[in-house]
Design a protein around this nucleic acid. Structure first.
Lengths: 211, 211
DNA sequence: GTCTATAGGCAGATAGAC
DNA sequence: GTCTATCTGCCTATAGAC
């Protein structure tokens, strides 16, 4: 393989990375929908035409960002078992799950923001919103199904309950991208944990027996 | 006042109403973001120029639709007292509130859809998402504040808890605009009531005393 | 107030030289 | 692969006749 060819590949990869980086920055600043392809190429210091050598359009670039993020998460999670039999009615375990989800969204702000906007901007008839919600909550759903199998009684269908939890999380994350009080509320995860675990009635002393 | 002038006013009102009607239909079919002003005028059987005689733009038309909806609700609710001291930890009262909210969104599908898309499409930096969520949940927030005043312990700040409940509601509504299984799930309100009231642990037997 | 016609401004996407 | 240049289509918004 000739050297020139290698160098070419490297430069191509650099351009691709530059586009992805620029996109992240712009998505975070102005949002996904308000960012034009020409904005991205300009910020990356590349030409408009160069963009289409790497991505068919903005949506495909977003999928690439998503893949990158998922790759990074998988790497960090490597080796950590994630068995199906977590008990989400255990406060610590529920809190862990919510904390991971929240942290991932916060640490990947541009991607989370863009995915949410893309989900909502899509023609509602396509059903993308429900599909996205469903996919993003598949882990929670499995844990809930496990609970049901063990005889626990949930407020409703596990799939729907999981989607409801996800809807709350992603929408709050979006709404809090610009923190209302200036700084990010520190106890979001704890509050949501308690709300989802015990509801408005709050943790209450249980009867001794399981009647 | 001359007759010609009256007739003119009437026709203007008809055009305005036709535009609003057409917008409702198109928003419901294709969504707010994908509907162009020219689509609305075409569907209403009017010219493009006519639109700007009544609205400065699409967003202003949406605000008009919102005002219309709120007017209709106020009319229906006229005479019904809505005191601040509702107890949302009472299942029936919480269910009633969620049911009203859900029914309003379902019966005003185009407006609810459009408002949600408009909220998300706005530049995130404006903080519109949080503001909208806050406003739409002001009633719930007041009830929760009332509970806190009476000594009840909530999972967190009433404003944030109310916003969380609202986030869940409006996002699920949006995701379920195209029902996944074909028909609309009938027990959405009941499931959300139980989830928000008791959480994942479900209603449980309480201890006899309040220790 | 409503119409026709059009100006004007993007922004997506491609052609062709290097 | 990357660039410059451009074409194309779409949509907002206005001008001017009726």
């Amino acid at each position: 393989m000739p050297q020139g060819s290698v160098s070419r590949k490297v430069r191509a990869a650099q351009t691709r990375a530059a586009l992805l980086d620029a996109a992240r920055g712009l998505f975070s600043e102005r949002g996904y929908l308000n960012t034009k392809i020409t904005d991205i190429t300009a910020a990356a210091g590349r030409s408009t035409g160069s963009f289409y050598e790497h991505f068919a359009g903005k949506e495909e670039l977003l999928q690439a960002l998503l893949a990158e993020m998922e790759g990074a998460i998988d790497t960090r999670m490597r080796g950590l078992e994630h068995p199906r039999d977590h008990d989400l009615t255990d406060r610590e375990q529920l809190r862990d799950h919510l904390d991971v989800a929240w942290t991932v969204m916060r640490q990947n702000r541009p991607v989370a923001l863009a995915l949410f906007q893309a989900m909502v901007a899509d023609d509602p008839g396509t059903g993308r919103a429900w599909r996205d919600l469903r996919e993003q909550t598949s882990t929670i759903r499995e844990h809930l199904e496990y609970l049901v199998e063990r005889g626990h009684r949930l407020p409703g269908d596990p799939e729907f309950v999981a989607a409801s939890m996800g809807a709350m999380l992603v929408t709050l994350n979006y709404a809090l991208l610009t923190p209302p009080g200036g700084e990010d509320a520190p106890d979001v995860v704890d509050t949501l944990t308690d709300l989802l675990l015990y509801g408005l009635t709050g943790p209450a002393p249980r009867a001794a027996d399981g009647t």
